[in-house]
Design a binder for these strands. Sequence first.
DNA 1: GATAAGTAGTTGAAGGTTCAACGTCTTGGC
DNA 2: GCCAAGACGTTGAACCTTCAACTACTTATC
Lengths: 160, 160
Amino acid sequence: MPEQNATVPNWLNPVEMKAWRSYIIASRRLLEALDNDLEGHDLSMPDYEVLAALSDAPDRKMRMSELAEIGLLSRSRLSHRMKVMEKAGWVKREACPSDKRGYFAVMTPKGWKAIVSAAPAHVESVRLRFLDHLSKEDQASLFVIFSRMEEAFRGESSCE
Amino acid sequence: MPEQNATVPNWLNPVEMKAWRSYIIASRRLLEALDNDLEGHDLSMPDYEVLAALSDAPDRKMRMSELAEIGLLSRSRLSHRMKVMEKAGWVKREACPSDKRGYFAVMTPKGWKAIVSAAPAHVESVRLRFLDHLSKEDQASLFVIFSRMEEAFRGESSCE
DNA sequence: GATAAGTAGTTGAAGGTTCAACGTCTTGGC
DNA sequence: GCCAAGACGTTGAACCTTCAACTACTTATC
């Protein structure tokens, strides 16, 4: 970090620095590892999340925009991704009768099979890579901390 | 999440689920927000980290591979990124005399100016978006948790 | 000291993501 | 009803990342 003191910047002290660095490194590695673990099932994390969201939805279908929101994807990104997932046969699109601008993403039986076969391994991987490092108390306090953070971001989401 | 019980998958219980979801959502938003905050200085997070690492190195220069490791970038990605950063005038490359395969990434005065002007705002943004949500004790326990996670990933880094 | 194996770094192609612009439809105000 | 403003979703272009292949050099082994 360069030093400078135009308005006396308030650099991170060693404790803060360590917290921040360990967080940033571990969180990247975590995402990487989860993605790798999923690769065996030919799924990426975003694809998995889209399928997981659909699998929980009534009739396994959901409006594009809702899906984008849940999956933390921009509309555009979801749209591009859907083209690929549709080609893979996991989902299809269906016009929405009540709003003619809208579409439903609908999970196909093949998509269902894909997520059913990937889910146990993915959950296992979330445990192994994340939850297993946390005691019950850690889990509770992480939840508090990150909910607070999440709350703070509410309203300025950049994936619309 | 679909249900299935081939080998009785051990789904997440509500506490685990909440910890996991809040973590994954907040951590994505955090990265997004930090990137946005940096945008005003025409830097992305990876660029910032590369410059920050260089600015701390002796002579503000560093071997490409070391830089890649610190910045959590693959060699290839760093190489591509360097081309851009070089064009922007922040860094240049310099052959390594002792190992003729190797290169140094060297920070230019312009690069120094860029990071000096971005750093205070970035640090402020790390505080605002992350550290401010954490008490001293939270910081310490996060550090313990994520160091442990980081440790577990050691050796299977996919950015070589 | 020759050779095999490994390391440093780059490259191009394939694929993913973002951004701004667009067409289509809905909604609210008059 | 009409019109402006907004929401839904898609598109293409620009950009970024990954992956595998490659060159050039170094190291280890014999």
